[in-house]
Design a protein around this nucleic acid. Structure first.
Lengths: 227, 227
DNA sequence: GCATTCATCATCGTATACAATTTTGTTCTG
DNA sequence: CAGAACAAAATTGTATACGATGATGAATGC
C-alpha cells in the first residue's frame, strides 16, 4: 500500500510530491490531506507536515491554516510574474553557460532532449514537461551558478503549475525545437545568440498561455501516486 | 522569561529569528538549539522545528542532521553567487520601479533612508543594515513584482550574512549616498539611470567584501533575543 | 604520555495523544 | 421548502514521549 519511493524523509517526500506536481499527476487544487499522504508513504503526520511546509515555501502548495494543504493554483498575476522573473534570470545565465560549456555538458543536454522526445513518444507529456524544465535548470548549473539554479528550479516548477492552469495549445508542447536551437548556440560558444534564443523561448512560452483563467479540475492524491 | 514577540506561530518565530540574523544580533555559526529557542518563545519544539526548517530553506540557517541548527556561514562561492543573482534581478527591477513610481512611494523610500540614518546615529548599525536591505525589497514592490521581491528579500537577508562574514570597511557602511542617488533617479522617472546606479551600487557592495574568509565569533541566542 | 575504546550525556528524529478549529449533516423553525 | 442553529465528525495545531544519533569524557592498552 506504500509508495515505491525509498526515501521516506521529509525531503524525500517533498521531492516526490514536487515531482508529481511538476509532472501534472497532481493537478492544481488537489487536496493533500496529512493523514492520506502519511498513509501513502507510510510515515506519521509529523514528517508529512515538514514536507508540506517545504512545498508551501516553494509555492507549490497552498497551506491554509486549519484547513489543509492544496496544490497551488497560480493566479494570472503570479503566472506573469513567474515568467518575468525567469526572463531576468535565464537569458544572461544561458550566455554564461554558452561561454563555459564543456563537451560532457553538451552530451548531457543532448541526452536530456532525447529523453524528452522519448517521453513524448511514449505518451507521457507530464514527464516530458518535467524533463524540459530540468533542461533549464541544467543550464544554470553549467553556468556554475548554484544559487541561480535553485531559483530557476523553483520558477520552473511553478511554471509547470501555470501551464497546468493556463496552457491553451492542447497537445502540442513542442519545446524541443527551441531547446535544440539553444544547444546548437551553446555548442558554438555563441553566448549572445544563446541569450537571445532563451529570451525568445521564454517569451514564446508566456504568449502560449491563455491568461483568462482556464481551470482544470483537481485530481485525486491516491490516483496520482498509486494506492 | 519569554520573548516580547506576540506572534508565537512558526511564521512569527521564523520572522523574528530572521530579523535577528539580518540585524547581526545572531552572528553566523550561532547555535540555535531547539530546546533553547522553544524556551525563549515559550513554545514546544514542534513549532520551533517548523520555524527552523523555514529558515533553513531560506538559507539563513544551516540544518545539520542530528546535530542541530546553526546560523549559516556563507562560503566565498555563495557570497559571490548571491551578489551575482542580485545583479541579474535588481537593476532591471529598479528601472521598472523608476518608470512607475508614485509620490507616495517616493515618500516611503525617503522615510526609509531617514530611518536608516537615525539607526546609524543611534549606534544601531545592524538595524541600519536591515533597513538598507528593506530599501531594495521596497523597490521591487514598487515595480509591482511580488515574486521578484520575494527573491530579493531572500538574497538581501543572505547578503547580510555575507557582510557579517566578509565585510572589511569596518564601521563605514555608508550606503545612504547610493540610495539617495537612486531615489533621485527614480523621482525623475529616469529608468536607465536607476538601472545603472543599481548595477554600480551592487558592484560596489561586492567589491567592498574581503573574500578571504574572515570569520566573526558566534554569539549567544539568549543574549541576542533577551532572556 | 598518547591514542583508542567504550560508556554516558545531550540533542535531534519520529510517533502518538490530545486540544482547537473547521466542516458537514441533521434538526428545528418560520 | 428554505434557512438557521446546533451537534457530530473530520482535520489540523501543538505538546509530549520515546528512540536514535552524534558528541563528550573517562578508562584502558600500548
Amino acid at each position: 500500500m506504500d509508495s515505491t519511493v525509498a526515501d521516506t524523509s521529509a525531503e524525500g517526500i517533498a521531492a516526490d510530491l514536487a515531482l508529481a506536481i511538476h509532472e501534472h499527476r497532481l493537478p492544481p487544487a488537489t487536496k493533500l490531506s496529512e493523514d492520506e499522504v502519511g498513509e501513502v508513504y507510510g510515515v506519521s503526520r509529523t514528517v508529512v507536515r515538514a514536507a508540506l511546509q517545504r512545498l508551501s515555501h516553494e509555492r507549490l502548495v497552498d497551506l491554509k491554516r486549519n484547513r489543509g494543504a492544496y496544490v497551488a493554483q497560480p493566479g494570472v498575476r503570479e503566472a506573469r510574474e513567474v515568467f518575468e522573473a525567469r526572463a531576468l534570470l535565464e537569458p544572461r545565465t544561458a550566455r554564461s553557460a554558452a561561454e563555459r560549456i564543456t563537451p560532457a555538458d553538451l552530451a548531457l543536454l543532448q541526452r536530456h532532449i532525447d529523453e524528452e522526445h522519448n517521453a513524448l513518444a511514449k505518451g507521457e507529456p507530464g514527464r516530458a514537461l518535467y524533463l524540459s524544465g530540468r533542461f533549464h535548470v541544467e543550464i544554470a548549473r553549467i553556468a556554475d551558478q548554484d544559487t541561480i539554479a535553485d531559483f530557476i528550479g523553483q520558477l520552473v516548477a511553478r511554471s509547470s503549475l501555470v501551464i497546468a492552469v493556463y496552457w491553451q495549445r492542447r497537445g502540442a508542447l513542442c519545446e524541443s525545437h527551441a531547446h535544440h536551437a539553444l544547444l546548437q548556440a551553446m555548442a558554438a560558444h555563441d553566448g549572445a545568440l544563446a541569450e537571445e534564443l532563451m529570451k525568445a523561448h521564454l517569451l514564446d512560452l508566456l504568449t502560449s498561455l491563455d491568461l483568462r483563467n482556464r481551470v482544470s479540475p483537481p485530481g485525486s492524491l491516491r490516483e496520482a501516486l498509486g494506492t
